[in-house]
């Protein structure tokens, strides 16, 4: 039987209350949202917080709204809500694609976008999605809000820039015209961690050439986005040759490890193939937004 080590539990009544509780209980206190990453680690005693601050009552962090030229997603928004959002499917289909393959439908009822990002598991899909989309994280602490880019937010596996008494409040995604995106994952079975996954965002110029593109990889040893994708694709018409070159760059940029999910060569092959697929799909979708 897996039972967490003993801890004390408090339910926050608001964001500032959560911050005050983190401040009061110190470095061994942790925020819990959906709990579907933290509780398994606590059950294995890989995490042993002395205090859990439950933020599930903070409905002010559970929102999803289009605010002028950006989409704002509250940190407590559940995966199911992201998957079912028409705004997201229209504006950022990479999120919808990823949510289809994150865990399983029952887990998605509890897990949150903020929890996924704060867990910062290298095999976690939404971190890649946020890298590719250039998301901005809004973080609140005792001294107010600060805005972090994803490269500032992510410090490495299981590590973020959040101070002990800070809480991730929301993620912001810039809405741009003639832009779309896609995500694809290879997994052994539903709910398993990715063998490999890739996400892409493409912005087309008025003449149909690529104005900007980004590709990110999940679970195969790459922080941030694949270097040189943007410079290689900029000004080019989307084509199979171009996608193949991007795939080659991705397979070189990643640094996978051999494990029970496959050998290194196979994972590099997936980086290549999945990069081609997501760039192809994102380009097609971006072209459709142009027609619409």
């Amino acid at each position: 039987m897996q039972i967490p080590a003993p801890f004390d539990y408090a339910r926050a009544t608001g964001v500032d209350d959560a911050i005050a509780l983190l401040d009061r209980h110190g470095p061994e206190s942790r925020i819990i949202a959906g709990g579907h990453s933290l509780l398994p680690m606590m059950k294995l005693r890989l995490a042993r917080p002395e205090w859990l601050i439950d933020i599930n009552d903070l409905y002010e962090l559970d929102f999803l709204l289009v605010d002028k030229d950006k989409l704002r997603i509250g940190a407590l928004t559940r995966h199911t809500a992201l998957l079912e959002s028409d705004d997201i499917a229209r504006l950022f289909p990479i999120i919808t694609d990823a949510e289809h393959v994150i865990a399983d439908p029952v887990v998605r009822n509890r897990g949150t976008i903020g929890g996924s990002l704060c867990q910062a598991d290298p095999a976690e899909d939404l971190s890649t999605v946020c890298d590719v989309l250039g998301a901005v994280a809004v973080v609140r602490g005792p001294n107010g809000d600060r805005m972090l880019t994803m490269s500032e937010f992510h410090r490495g596996p299981y590590e973020t820039a959040l101070a002990q008494n800070e809480i991730l409040c929301e993620l912001q995604f810039a809405i741009r015209p003639r832009t779309s995106s896609a995500y694809e994952k290879v997994e052994r079975r539903v709910g398993d961690w990715a063998v490999a996954a890739a996400g892409a965002s493409v912005t087309l110029a008025a003449d149909g050439t690529i104005e900007e593109a980004a590709v990110g990889l999940t679970a195969i040893g790459l922080d941030g986005t694949v270097p040189d994708i943007d410079s290689t694709t900029r000004g080019q018409k989307p084509s199979e040759e171009l996608f193949a070159e991007a795939g080659r760059l991705a397979s070189l940029a990643c640094d996978p490890v051999a494990d029970q999910r496959g050998p290194i060569d196979y994972k590099r092959h997936l980086a290549d193939e999945l990069t081609r697929r997501v760039l192809r799909r994102a380009s097609e979708r971006a072209a459709q937004t142009q027609e619409g």
Binding site: Y9, H36, P40, D104, V106, V107, N109, G191
Partner: peptide
């Protein structure tokens, strides 16, 4: 399974299925 994989522990919380091995 105790690892939120098998789903035999599913109960409804506010009408939504959740894996009760991974909820306090």
């Amino acid at each position: 399974c105790d690892t939120s994989n098998c789903g035999t522990c599913v109960v409804l919380m506010d009408g939504q299925p959740v894996k009760s091995c991974t909820v306090l």
